[in-house]
Amino acid sequence: KKYKVVEVKENKDGTVELVVENENGEKKKITLSKEELDKLKAGDTVELK
Rank of each mutant, 00 (worst) to 15 (best):
A42C: 12
N24Q: 11
K28C: 15
V19S: 07
V6G: 01
N24C: 15
K1H: 07
E17S: 09
Y3G: 00
V19Q: 05
D13Q: 02
L32S: 03
K34D: 04
Y3M: 02
A42Y: 04
T31D: 01
L40A: 08
E10P: 06
E17F: 14
N22F: 06
D38V: 12
K29N: 10
N11D: 04
L40D: 01
Y3V: 01
G43Y: 03
T31N: 06
K41H: 05
V8C: 14
V20I: 10
K1D: 02
K29W: 15
E21C: 08
K9R: 12
E17M: 12
V5A: 01
G14M: 02
D44N: 06
D44F: 02
D44W: 01
G25P: 00
L18M: 08
K34A: 10
L37K: 14
N11G: 06
K9P: 00
T15V: 04
G25E: 02
K28S: 12
V46K: 02
L18Q: 00
E10F: 06
I30H: 03
V8P: 00
K12D: 09
V5W: 04
K27M: 13
E10R: 04
L37Q: 07
E36T: 11
V6A: 02
S33H: 11
E26W: 12
E10V: 07
E47W: 06
K4N: 02
K41L: 08
K4S: 03
N11R: 07
L48Q: 08
N24Y: 10
K4A: 02
K41Q: 10
K29R: 14
T15E: 03
K1V: 12
K28Y: 15
K41A: 08
K4C: 15
D13L: 02
E23H: 06
E21T: 06
N24L: 11
K39D: 14
K49G: 15
V6S: 03
D38F: 12
V19G: 01
K12Q: 11
E23C: 11
V16D: 00
V8G: 01
K4Y: 04
D38A: 10
K41W: 08
K28R: 14
K4G: 01
T31M: 10
L37F: 12
L48K: 09
K4V: 06
V20F: 05
G43W: 05
V19Y: 06
A42W: 03
V20N: 00
L37M: 11
N22R: 04
I30C: 11
N22S: 13
E17K: 02
V5L: 07
G25W: 01
S33D: 09
E26N: 04
G43F: 03
K28D: 05
L40T: 10
K12S: 11
K39A: 05
K29V: 12
K49E: 15
V20C: 10
K27N: 03
E7Y: 14
V8T: 06
K41G: 06
E10H: 13
I30E: 00
K27S: 07
V19L: 10
D44R: 03
L37N: 12
V19H: 06
V46Y: 02
L37P: 05
K29G: 06
K12I: 10
L18G: 00
Y3E: 00
G43Q: 04
E7N: 09
V8E: 04
V46Q: 03
G43T: 04
K49N: 15
V8S: 04
G43I: 03
E7Q: 09
K12P: 12
T45F: 13
K9G: 05
V46H: 04
N11T: 08
V46M: 04
N24T: 09
V5Y: 02
E35K: 12
K2H: 04
K34S: 11
N11A: 07
E23R: 04
E7V: 11
T45P: 02
N22W: 09
L48W: 03
N24M: 13
T31H: 06
D44Y: 02
E26C: 15
E35G: 14
I30Q: 01
V16S: 04
K27W: 14
G25S: 03
G25C: 07
K1F: 10
T45Q: 03
L40K: 04
S33W: 15
V19A: 03
K9E: 03
V6N: 03
K29E: 05
E23F: 08
E26K: 06
V46A: 02
K2F: 11
E36K: 12
E26Y: 13
E35F: 14
V20W: 03
K41E: 09
V16P: 00
E35P: 11
L48T: 09
A42K: 08
K12T: 09
V6R: 03
K28A: 08
E47F: 07
N11K: 06
L40G: 02
K34T: 10
D38I: 10
E35W: 15
K28M: 14
L32Q: 02
V20T: 02
E26M: 09
D44H: 05
N24H: 11
S33L: 13
T45E: 14
A42H: 07
V5R: 00
E10C: 14
E26Q: 08
Y3F: 06
L18F: 04
V16T: 05
G14I: 00
E23P: 05
K34P: 05
D38T: 13
E23T: 07
L48M: 06
N22C: 13
T15W: 11
K12V: 09
K39C: 12
V6T: 06
